[in-house]
Design a protein around this nucleic acid. Sequence first.
DNA 1: TTGTAAGCGTTATCAA
DNA 2: TTGATAACGCTTACAA
Lengths: 330, 330
Amino acid sequence: MTLDDLAKELDVSIATISRALSRPEQVAPRTRERVLAAVHRHGYKPFGTGRSLRTQQTRTIGVVVSDIRNAFFAAAVKAIEDVARANGYSVLICNADEDRQKEGIALQLLLDRKVSGVINCSTGANLELLRMFEKSGTVLVDFDRESGLNNVDTVVLDNVLGASLAAQHLVELGHRAIATIAGPKHLSNARGRLAGFRKTLQEFKIATRPEYVLFGNFKPESGYSAAQRLFSLAKPPTALFVANIEMAAGVIQFAREKKISIPKDLSLVSFDDPLWAQFMDPPLTVIVQPTEEMGECAMELLLGRLRGRSPVQTKAFPPRLVVRGSTAKR
Amino acid sequence: MTLDDLAKELDVSIATISRALSRPEQVAPRTRERVLAAVHRHGYKPFGTGRSLRTQQTRTIGVVVSDIRNAFFAAAVKAIEDVARANGYSVLICNADEDRQKEGIALQLLLDRKVSGVINCSTGANLELLRMFEKSGTVLVDFDRESGLNNVDTVVLDNVLGASLAAQHLVELGHRAIATIAGPKHLSNARGRLAGFRKTLQEFKIATRPEYVLFGNFKPESGYSAAQRLFSLAKPPTALFVANIEMAAGVIQFAREKKISIPKDLSLVSFDDPLWAQFMDPPLTVIVQPTEEMGECAMELLLGRLRGRSPVQTKAFPPRLVVRGSTAKR
DNA sequence: TTGTAAGCGTTATCAA
DNA sequence: TTGATAACGCTTACAA
């Protein structure tokens, strides 16, 4: 059912129908009702394809997400989609799998589709591609990680604060041999967490030994192998700050296998708080991000830009420390 | 950059460029190379909007997912997206939140967008809407749950078998007072799991007391309140089969609060196996679904249909029992 | 108040 | 082998 079909049936022009739908006040009450009745009767809805071509906007926003299986991103996507839907936008999901190349392909795709906006969890690469969005007038929002672009709205956590909270907690429990498993160096959030960790130890005058700073890729396996290295050290740490909970899962697996007791032998704090964290053995002490709020905020910022707000905004959300059973006094 | 721009620059017609891109063999080698070089130089890519209007297909597939925060669906979405991307399709995600009305809105939206296909985790409602897809030639695949439509490809788990495995495991451990928290009656997967549970108890000549069969909505809170009811019974069960792990989390929370020890006081089996299940306290005995395979299969079935395969296919994947620490001998 | 018609960027048919 | 041109379904000046 197209405008043409409907126009024939009602013996009015397609323009009238289109108007009756988008600017009802511009058409005579009698015609309007006749049209609206027919529209309703047939369940007519304008095709998005035709409209998009004409208006040059798709009312679709693309979300390039680092890892959809990660509870943090899944929750963020849910929040984004809720706000988008409430405002008549659809959400095209692209899973980049923490891979710069996959991110690039995703961005290309969104570019072709002429999406109205993009929420991007950037790997820090693909800057040229991102600039093409700016050039083509597509609104960009950095989420969780900064892409490095200047003129984009940004929604992140205050990662430095989060890591500080974690480190401080460990120090206050009496730990001095404190290690960290950081995220990839090219990710701004990982860098922030590492910086906060270092800063705090320094404030407490605790030297950070280089062998206590390891890097993973935010996936469980990398947590596992980092733990392996840590515990093959002459003097393994008594406390560990892990930059996300997926890597922490890897650490826990290693600890189980080697009968390293958490928190007796090793205190563990990590980032993110999926439902499960509290049911783990032991329940995990974590840094909580206000995930849903962050997702909503990103979409709202995007909508604001689409509606013409111009000044760039950066929102850094405050994290919270939730103490459970995985950390203990030295 | 559009075909027109490029045509002007190269002084050929837009038709030639379009052809050079889609049927290179039909254009003279010299022209072809000239065109391709310019295309490459400018990074020209046909706009999806124009193409979609002309070809009447969007190369987009819609996925209506029950709950994106649920690890099962997140993993399925990842698999679906991988296969889709590899075949030049994008994925529009709609989160229905286990809500029939939200599902309806999502389906409407996908209808407007003229998506090429839909993978639907049906709530069992919105049948008329689904029929509209069939009428408009949009390929439909039921995933995880059957919509009730006849002529659609279907990817599900063998839920009866999964529940049987769970129930049998409990019986073999010596339990006789076995309860279940089932999913919503209107969902085919929930019905299958309940049927498998009942069938197995019957086979073992164990009477299913009506007060041992409770219904939840697949979310943690409903697991919590069901557990509450179960333990206010004169004779609480010694074993419990929960139809998904989200509800199991609710049960665990209740057990913690009431100092009910799992598995000493209560053996617990549930469905689904997110990474965390093995790290919980105790590690959870679960029925595992081959999630990624199921997601891939759904997308492949969809692609098959898009390419003209006609016979309807139904795939029921076999579940696996993984015994961990949440179940024990009576 | 309504209709006519142009145009969004593409593909595909037909002639040249 | 190439080019002109007609759609695809919609919105929106502009004219009637």
